[in-house]
Amino acid sequence: MSRYTLITGASAGLGREFSIQCAGLGMNIIMIALPASNTVSLAENLMLEFGIKIEVFEFDMTDSILLVEKLNYIAENFEINFLINNAGIGGTVAITESPLTAIDRILQVNIRSMVLITQILLPGLLKQDRGYIMNISSMAAFTPIAYKTVYPASKAFISSFALGLREELSDTCVSVSVVYPGPIMTNSGVSARIMEQGIKGRMGLLSTSAIAEIALKKTLVGKALIIPGFWNRINHRIMGLLPVETKLKIVSKAVKKEMAIK
C-alpha cells in the first residue's frame, strides 16, 4: 500500500507550499482544506507534474463530527507516515470586541482539530518503519500578546503538545517536530501590516517556500524545535532574556500600533 503525507490547510499559504514541496520530494499527499478553496485544481497540477498520488478532502474542520468521520475513513484506507498539522487561524482585536464565534473558531482549528487529527492518525503512524509529525506553531507562542490573546495562547498549546508528545513517543518510530515561523506574507492584508511596521516588522520575514523547505528538511532529520530564519532565532534568544512583563509590553505595543494603522 502506498504511503501518504497528510497536510491540513493544504490549499493556501504555507500549507500550499508544503503540498508543492512534498510533491517535489515524491511524496503522495492527502490534502485537507476548506470547501471551494481550489484544492482539486492544485492537486491535479501536482499529480501531472510530479507523477504522485493525491487525495483531496474539502470540509470545515470545526465540524467535529464530520472531522472524526473523515479521519476514521482516512485512517482505515490510507497509510500515513507523515502528518503536517499546518491549519491555523488568528486575528487582531480587543477581546471584548471579538465575536464569540471567532474566538471559538480559533480554538476549534488551532487546538481541538489538531489534537483529534493527531490522536486518530497516530496508531497508523506507529505502524510505519519511520513516521513524522510536524506541528506548525508560531514565534507568537513565546510570549503573551494583548489584542491577540487567544492566538498566541493557542500556538503555545501547539508547542507544548508537540514537545510533550515527542517525549512520550521517544522510544517509538515516530519523531515529532514543532515549527515556529515568524511573519509570513500569506495574503495582501497581512503583507500590508508587515510592511507598515518598517524594518523591525520585516527583519524576520521569510517566504513561504523558504519556511517550508527549512521545516521539511529539519523535521525529516528528527529536529525537535525549528525556528526558520537567522533573525528569528536571534530574536528568540534576546526575548528569552527578558522578563515576561517586558516582552508582553514590547510586543503588545507593536500590535496596538498596528491596530491604529488599520
Rank of each mutant, 00 (worst) to 15 (best):
E245S: 14
L48I: 10
K249T: 13
R3K: 15
G9P: 05
V109H: 02
V179A: 11
S64P: 13
L205C: 04
I238K: 01
I194N: 04
G189W: 10
N232M: 07
N77K: 09
I214C: 06
E49H: 05
V190Y: 04
L125D: 09
L25F: 15
S137Y: 03
K247L: 12
C22N: 13
L116C: 06
S209Q: 13
L216Y: 04
M114A: 15
I29V: 15
L163R: 13
E58Q: 11
A192S: 14
K53T: 05
N81D: 15
I84D: 07
L169M: 09
R130M: 12
L46Y: 05
M61I: 15
P181H: 08
F82G: 11
P123E: 07
T39A: 14
A94R: 13
L66Y: 05
I226W: 03
Y4P: 00
L48E: 13
I52S: 01
L121N: 03
P144F: 09
G26T: 08
I136A: 03
S41W: 01
W231I: 08
S113N: 10
S252N: 10
L126C: 05
M259A: 01
A254L: 11
V174M: 02
T246L: 15
Q108E: 02
S188Y: 10
A140N: 03
S2Y: 12
A162K: 06
L121Y: 01
K223N: 04
S252G: 08
I32Q: 10
